[in-house]
Design a protein around this nucleic acid. Sequence first.
DNA 1: CCGTGCCTTGCAAACGATTGCAGAAACTTG
DNA 2: CAAGTTTCTGCAATCGTTTGCAAGGCACGG
Lengths: 343, 343
Amino acid sequence: MTKPRVTLKDIAGRVGVHPSTVSRVLNPKTRGMVNPEIAATIAETADKMGYRPNPFAYSLRTRRSFIIGVMIPDIANPVFPPIIRGIERILEPHGYAVVLANTDNSSERERVSIERFVERQVDGLITATSLLSDDFLVDLGADVPVVFVNRRAETPGVPSVVVNDAAGIAAIIEHLVSLGHRRVAHVAGPQLMSTGKIRYETFVEECRKAGLATDATLIEFTDAFMEGEGRRAATALLKREKFTAIVAANDLLALGCYGALADAGLVCGRDVSVTGFNDMPFVDRLQPPLTTVHIPLNEMGEGAARLLLDQLMENGSSETTITLQPELVVRASTGPAPKVAKK
Amino acid sequence: MTKPRVTLKDIAGRVGVHPSTVSRVLNPKTRGMVNPEIAATIAETADKMGYRPNPFAYSLRTRRSFIIGVMIPDIANPVFPPIIRGIERILEPHGYAVVLANTDNSSERERVSIERFVERQVDGLITATSLLSDDFLVDLGADVPVVFVNRRAETPGVPSVVVNDAAGIAAIIEHLVSLGHRRVAHVAGPQLMSTGKIRYETFVEECRKAGLATDATLIEFTDAFMEGEGRRAATALLKREKFTAIVAANDLLALGCYGALADAGLVCGRDVSVTGFNDMPFVDRLQPPLTTVHIPLNEMGEGAARLLLDQLMENGSSETTITLQPELVVRASTGPAPKVAKK
DNA sequence: CCGTGCCTTGCAAACGATTGCAGAAACTTG
DNA sequence: CAAGTTTCTGCAATCGTTTGCAAGGCACGG
């Protein structure tokens, strides 16, 4: 029993004008073209009849879908929901809908997601921590505006919003040094991702500057920013090295470290300190609460959405990269270095 | 430099047939109509030319968008991501894209979200823990199939997937009784939501059956399933009553109870036991780990998607309500009742 | 050899908007 | 008052599909 939708023609018939006139009235940009009196009548009856433009007809004609694709590794990772809400907060008022794609860190799934997006003719793309190289889109022959979030673009000119990873890592090292730690291990993120790479490089650099131990064996790389990998890496480190603290490249990896420490019968924050990165929701409620670097997730989303809008509206977008400042949050997972480095 | 998309006409021109023939070949249902040899040629060149159907033209003609709207309170609430992934796992292989709407528990925002969905001509709707009455859609004059998840429909015939709340609450009470608790408080959910209501009613019923205290003052209602409300409610309870355990209507409320206990200088799990509901991600890592009722979030999403597909395909869908069984998970937030009920 | 029916295929009309173009009416202006 | 200009509105094409209808070709039976 669907009551058929009201169309421009219906309104036109009612008012006694041509559909194109109705179209012009209903489009703010062209409304000025038509006689104000008639325009008022049209607008009124359109309203009265409950007119809703048919998005397909509109999109077919104008090739604008008002859909934005957002590609993330996994919505179940608490880092992403706030980013997404930030994106939606900005985009929704402009009439855009957001379609999500979870890739589970698989570059294959990234490919098909993007292909799906292009098929669906999204007007723009926001992609978080992607594995693919910058030019994945030109390969597809599509010129969809893209914004990276939490991933630095190699190509200059590709807009992205990132945090100052180096500053965050530096703050962590400084904090650990002030607590007396001298041998600090690093559970590094995937080096294919810009965040993983920069955090690792900064870690090495800052340790050197601070005069800390810089043995290569104090570092263990992971394949993915996931808890399981963190656990594996920390276990390996505990097996081969002595240290009093672990700097994990993000919170999820830190969570894995918690597990490894528990397995080893060590108390996190007393025997070994652990730090994370991101300050994702709920890490303040962990056992123990995690010392980490807070990054403004909401603003990252909003920034990405704004950069995208800039491109969509062809405003000579002034800025192309937004860098946000992180902030160290000290909680109970870090404490004074114990006298003797635990094995 | 967008290379213009390949259309049916392009292919037709290349092969030397009419576009409608190409259309028939590319549509599995009508492919049988056309000469197999020609069909093969067409399929091949379509493939070679990289044909991608224009979704707008298709939707305009057929009035199917292949978009499903999913309405939830807040994606940042860890209960929902697994549900959403479940939905997508089922829907995506059928070509459907999912558009999310966060309502922040505002019925006003629910209204506008639904209106947006209808405007966009979604093919179906899945809505989680909605405040609106069952018939919100008929008011809109739209006949979009709907499935409720985690919300019981009042109207019979409206498909929904829910968990057996009563069994969950019963298990909790049984557990608390076995630990020696006699005075148990309840932080009840909003009574406008079916889950809040059923859990509350079952709580009262089970307390009575088990011979526990049933003072009305042992119960405090909340306006929303949110941490802040849980904290407020638990604080109020602590101020006016004696009890040794709190049954919260869900995990978020339980989290609020944690806060209230900490404020009062009480140790959760020793002085006062706390239970939740849902077993959302990360509650096993809380301080202390939360005793709660596990519900299969992924399956809820999958079930909802399947029920929706049933409606979309007009299969005489056999079942209309899926009820999933919950399971008590005992962790450290519950312990033996202390000798003297804490005030 | 012709009528009947099936198998293919093309034609053209939708679906519901947007928009360049042209013409009619109204208004300036000298 | 004529010529030119502006303002408004309608016409019709277009976006890329799908699909009812009709017609051509061919085989077959009588």
